[in-house]
């Protein structure tokens, strides 16, 4: 479970050696868009030696590989042999790229006796949006990440602060994820100097059902974590519900004047679980 994921360019030694200190719930080591085409080998080797030699690695490691139809895909996937990677972030996810990556991963896993690699799918094409319900069903997929930059480019539309242009895409991703009990992660907010814009964007995404957001600079993490964490008030409410439930010992009761039944108890349990994971209790 995440609230925040931070992108770190794979070829940047200064960021890499400090990847473990930031308050994000996971780090995305980027071999794709943040790396110049001539430096792909440099980035890949740097990330690889970093994985092998560093004692304190971040808690969740995600590797953004290059697209399945690129020259780099096979070498990128070999980093799985380090056994340090928790998720592969698949760019330009659609049913075709899913099919290809699944084949490649299965063969790699079998040959090297690796456990099943989990995927986060980057939904950043109209095709990906159209096929997102199918993508979300795939057993490897644990989360969907909306990529708004590529998507709005493809649609030839401007990104705005209000974000109406993303309403459909966000909702599609949210529902596909929810229907398959996986995580919906929101696109990054690209203006790192605009604090108010970031706050609005996070709240808006959250209100539509996004459960987490990516960051492109560590300074965005505090806001993201704050907005995507359960509030103190909510945690307090959930604790009250659970305590009352344990005391009365039956499935339907009143709490703070409101009816509590099974779905409400489940919601409270989920919330407490989340608060535990994020160290908020």
């Amino acid at each position: 479970m995440f609230r925040s994921l931070l992108f770190i360019p794979g070829n940047n030694p200064s960021m890499l050696q400090n990847a473990d200190i930031f308050m994000s719930d996971g780090i995305i080591f980027d071999l794709e868009d943040a790396v110049n085409i001539n430096e792909k080998d440099n980035a890949r080797n740097l990330v690889e030696t970093y994985f092998f030699t560093t004692k304190d690695l971040p808690k969740n490691i995600i590797l953004r590989i290059n697209p399945v139809n690129s020259l780099f895909i096979e070498d990128d996937l070999k980093l799985l042999l380090s056994r340090k990677i928790d998720y592969i972030l698949l760019p330009k996810a659609n049913m075709l790229s899913m099919y290809v990556i699944d084949k490649m991963l299965s063969s790699l896993e079998e040959k090297n006796n690796l456990k099943v690699t989990k995927l986060i799918c980057l939904i950043e094409e109209a095709k990906g949006i159209a096929e997102v319900d199918e993508i979300a069903k795939h057993p490897r997929v644990e989360a969907l990440l909306l990529g708004a930059e590529d998507l709005t480019n493809e649609l030839e539309i401007e990104r705005t602060t209000v974000g109406n242009e993303l309403l459909y895409a966000r909702s599609k991703v949210v529902y596909a994820a929810a229907a398959n009990q996986i995580l919906a992660i929101d696109t990054p907010f690209t203006d790192i100097t605009d604090q108010e814009g970031l706050e609005y964007d996070c709240s808006n995404a959250k209100s539509l059902g996004m459960k987490a957001k990516t960051a492109i600079h560590p300074s965005q993490l505090e806001t993201i974590n704050q907005i995507f964490s359960p509030t103190k008030k909510m945690i307090h409410w959930a604790q009250g519900v659970i305590q009352t439930y344990e005391k009365v010992g039956k499935g339907v009761f009143q709490y703070q004047g409101k009816m509590v039944d099974k779905p409400v108890i489940e919601k409270a349990k989920k919330l407490i679980e989340k608060a535990k994971i994020f160290d908020l209790l």
Binding site: P13, L16, Q17, D41, N42, N45, L46, E48, T49, Y50, F52, T53, T54
Partner: peptide, 17 residues
């Protein structure tokens, strides 16, 4: 001021190139 693994990674790439 590169750490050892950075030096190793850079050298490996130079050799491969």
């Amino acid at each position: 001021g590169a750490l050892d693994y950075t030096i190793r990674a850079r050298l490996i790439v130079a050799i491969r190139r």
